[in-house]
C-alpha cells in the first residue's frame, strides 16, 4: 500500500461540534469498568473542580475516530479501510473532557510513509471548544497492510 507523501501537512475542515453527554460518559465508563465516582456522579466531579462528570482518558476516541474518517475516506488519499490496523494512539490533555462540552475536531496529516510494502499514516486531531479553547490533542497512527 503506497500512500502519497504530498499529503503531509494537509489539514481538513473542522467537524461539526460534538455534544458530550453525561450518559455517554457513564456508558463509556461502564463499558470499560471504570468505577471512579467522578465518571458517574456530578457531585463527585464537582468536588474535583469540574462542572460535570469527567470522561475516562481514552473517551475522545468516540469523536476522533469518527472525525478521522475524513482522512481515511478521502478518495484522493485512497486508503483501503479493510486493510487498516491500528498502530499507535496518544492523548495529550490540556484539561479533561467533561459532560456538557461541545467539541470540534481539526484533523491534520502529520506523517505519511511506506515501508516494507505497508503504508503508515499518522494523524493529529486538535480537539477544542467551538471558541478554540484547547482540550486534548490526539495522535493516531494507522498501518495500511500491503497486499500479500
Amino acid at each position: 500500500m503506497s500512500l502519497d507523501p504530498s499529503f503531509v501537512g494537509r489539514t481538513y475542515p473542522p467537524t461539526a461540534p460534538y455534544q458530550v453527554g453525561r450518559e455517554k460518559i457513564r456508558e463509556f465508563a461502564t463499558a470499560i469498568g471504570a468505577t471512579e465516582p467522578a465518571h458517574h456522579d456530578p457531585a463527585a466531579a464537582r468536588a474535583l473542580g469540574h462542572p460535570d462528570v469527567v470522561a475516562p482518558p481514552t473517551f475522545p476516541v468516540v469523536l476522533t475516530m469518527a472525525a478521522t474518517r475524513q482522512i481515511v475516506e478521502d478518495p484522493d488519499l485512497g486508503v483501503d479501510y479493510s486493510r487498516v490496523v491500528h498502530g499507535d494512539q496518544r492523548f495529550a490533555y490540556t484539561r479533561p473532557v467533561v459532560a456538557g462540552d461541545e467539541l470540534v475536531c481539526v484533523n491534520t496529516i502529520e506523517d505519511v510513509r511506506t515501508r516494507g510494502g505497508h503504508g503508515f499514516l499518522t494523524t493529529r486531531t486538535e480537539v477544542t471548544t467551538p471558541d478554540g479553547e484547547s482540550v486534548v490533542t490526539v495522535w493516531s497512527k494507522i498501518v495500511v497492510r500491503g497486499e500479500g
Binding site: V54, P57, T58, M65, H86, D88, F91
Partner: peptide
Amino acid sequence: GMFTMALVGRAVTEWAGAADAVVDYGV
C-alpha cells in the same frame, strides 16, 4: 486495541487515585 488501551488507562487512573489525573497517555 482501544479497549485494551482503555483498560490500561483504568489501571493508570487507579494508580493515580483520581479520575482526572491523566495528562498524557500513549501506546
